[in-house]
Design a protein around this nucleic acid. Structure first.
Length: 550
RNA sequence: GGCCUGUUGGUGAAGUGGCUUAACACACUGCCCUCUCAAGGCAGCAUUCACGGAUUCGAAUUCCGUACAGGCUACCA
């Protein structure tokens, strides 16, 4: 086709496209950002389900742009109407808010480079396709599904690469008259790239995370525009990331195979290439088979984003976990700098795992415990209340009614360099502090008491009435327990008891155990004296009475 | 079938030719501390980096082959 014929063809195909590409180049100028600033983007499809893997890539987008004073924007990639799910977009935006991974530009956020929803950008894509046709780098293809299926079958038999390229690209060099004839017949068509590549050439692509990658040059006439006129992912990616001036495309591993295509698209379109960083997917080693397998919604509930909210896993703790899988040296750094925040850490692509990252639930739990141990009691109370309001209204009410006590209980053994680490999630609080709220304690009673023993209530009542003083320090208190033990024929220490078990009824520990079971309903608890101080004598005696009347 | 990528302990992993007799963390086990737990302290936990070969004075680290695993190979993203 001559250049005049190509212009005629382009106008025939896209009569409504009046703008030239220059219009958009001018409309979306270079960003004014400091040297080295990274512009990243999160581009989800609204298919209705956001999972940990999505969150991980959005987290990386946020963190890298933030530390370079760049931009992080949200783009909705909804070019496939078939996969759209009602409320899908709202869900994505909601999740981003819930998990505090907030873009500073994009769909539902502000920005100068919109629209940030691909379904609203059709005209832009078509403008660039029209230009490509004029330049002889794209063409309409009228092949039917059957024809393509037959070619695929033939290629499978011949064990060659599958796709429309070389001799298989039969519509590549259609004359203008042939195209017109198809158009007159109302034949459906797609627009394909007229790939200039040769698969015999080897090209090298540098990925920020994976390093040097070698591929055969791309030579497939990939579809740019589907028959409904909407772009494929690949084409939309090239146009959008160019016009929105993305500097770093951080995305899942599954895209590395498309790299030769994407590089070629940028070349053909005359765009300066973006940098790519492909992050390894989150995987799971199947307990039964030992194989690494895809994560499933059903088998791996933690993969779905709801899991974290429902179980009351704090968002900050999840951020900590995402940071440890984003950079392999984060964990060590955080341990060495417990008083610092994620934003103090400098993330780097070199420290990003190349292979698949397995999800380590035990590690998450540990991170959560560390998180809670650093939190002041008041904050834990407020956060737990907020969570309970959503998931356990009855408990939330009790929390509000017992706020002062509850904070005191949460504060036990919190001071000092070795705070307790017994809460991993908000949902643990109710269970761990079941003795803290009277009405809850009465209701649950002693059902959680694992002890088989029965304890001497008279002995303990005697102790409480005649020996217990609640305004002492811990050491003084314990000395009085010792005295009481000796007076009643108990050894003053476990060691003493072990040396001569026959001469004693038991040891101090047994007395403490009796008190503990009667007032908390459990064999294990944080510091006993602190608990007693908060409860006060009346409630202590009331509980002992409850125990007596079991 | 073709094209890519990966494979280090129970787990997550560090490691980019000699500072590695393989870090660190989690988990686990034992001891210590101790009124019980949690926390903390100490100790133990891969003679070896999927397997085979090559290069090298020297390899977990480079190269080749094999096996296994994952991804892509859609008018899905």
């Amino acid at each position: 086709m001559t250049s005049e014929e190509r212009i005629e063809l382009a106008n025939l195909l896209f009569p409504n496209i009046k703008n030239e590409t220059k219009y958009y180049e001018d409309k979306y100028p270079e960003r004014k950002l400091p040297e080295g600033a990274m512009v990243t983007r999160y581009g989800p499809s609204p298919t209705g389900f956001v999972h940990l893997g999505n969150l991980l890539s959005a987290f990386a987008d946020m963190v890298y742009s933030k530390q370079t004073n760049g931009k992080f924007f949200l783009r909705i990639e909804d070019t496939d109407q078939k996969r759209m799910i009602d409320g899908g977009i709202e869900n994505i935006v909601g999740v981003l808010h819930d998990f505090d991974i907030l873009p500073n530009e994009g769909y539902s956020f502000d920005g100068e480079y919109g629209p940030y929803r691909q379904s609203e950008r059709t005209e832009i894509y078509q403008t660039y396709v029209k230009d490509l046709i004029i330049r002889g780098l794209a063409y309409p293809c009228f092949m039917t599904e059957e024809e393509i299926a037959n070619i695929k079958e033939e290629q499978e038999i011949n064990k060659t690469k599958i796709g429309i390229y070389g001799v298989y690209a039969v519509d590549r060099d259609l004359s203008l008259d042939e195209v017109k004839e198809h158009l007159n017949n109302k034949d459906e068509y797609v627009i394909r790239l007229k790939s200039p590549g040769n698969a015999k050439n080897e090209i090298e692509i540098v990925d920020c995370i994976k390093g040097k990658l070698k591929f055969p040059e791309h030579d497939v006439d990939t579809i740019l525009l589907k028959k409904d006129g909407t772009p494929t992912y690949h084409f939309a990616h090239a146009i959008d990331d160019h016009l929105m001036h993305t500097t770093h495309v951080i995305r899942g591993d599954e895209w590395v195979s498309s790299l030769p295509l994407h590089i070629q698209l940028f070349e053909v379109l005359g765009f300066t290439p973006v940098k790519y960083a492909h992050i390894a997917p989150i995987t799971i080693k199947d307990a039964e088979t030992g194989n690494i397998r895809k994560i499933s919604k059903r088998k791996d509930p933690w993969f779905g984003v709801k899991y974290y909210d429902e179980n009351g896993i704090p968002i900050e703790a999840l951020h900590l976990y995402l940071a440890t899988i984003t950079n392999t040296n984060f964990e060590e750094w955080y341990l060495a700098n417990p008083d610092k925040n994620i934003s103090d850490f400098e993330f780097s692509f070199d420290k990003q795992a190349i292979g698949g990252t397995s999800f380590d639930e035990a590690k998450l739990v540990n991170l959560c415990k560390t998180y809670f141990s650093h939190k002041p009691a008041k904050d834990i109370f407020e956060e737990t209340l907020k969570w309970a309001l959503k998931h356990d209204e009855e408990y939330a009410k009790l929390l509000e009614e017992n706020k002062e006590d509850m904070i005191k209980f949460l504060n036990i053994e919190k001071d000092g360099p070795r705070p307790r680490k017994d809460i991993a999630k908000y949902s643990d609080v109710k269970e761990e502090f079941s003795y803290a709220i009277d009405s809850l304690f009465e209701k649950e009673n002693y059902s959680k008491n694992e002890s088989e023993k029965t304890y001497d209530t008279d002995l303990i009542i005697d102790y409480v009435n005649n020996y217990l003083e609640l305004d002492r320090d811990n050491e003084t208190w314990f000395n009085t327990v010792r005295e009481f033990a000796i007076k009643n024929g108990y050894a003053s220490s476990p060691k003493e008891y072990k040396a001569a078990p026959d001469s004693f009824k038991g040891h101090v520990g047994d007395i403490c155990e009796a008190i503990r079971v009667m007032i908390t309903g459990r064999l294990k608890s944080p510091d006993l004296y602190s608990i007693m101080k908060i409860l006060g004598k009346d409630r202590i005696l009331k509980r002992i009475d409850m125990y007596k009347n079991l």
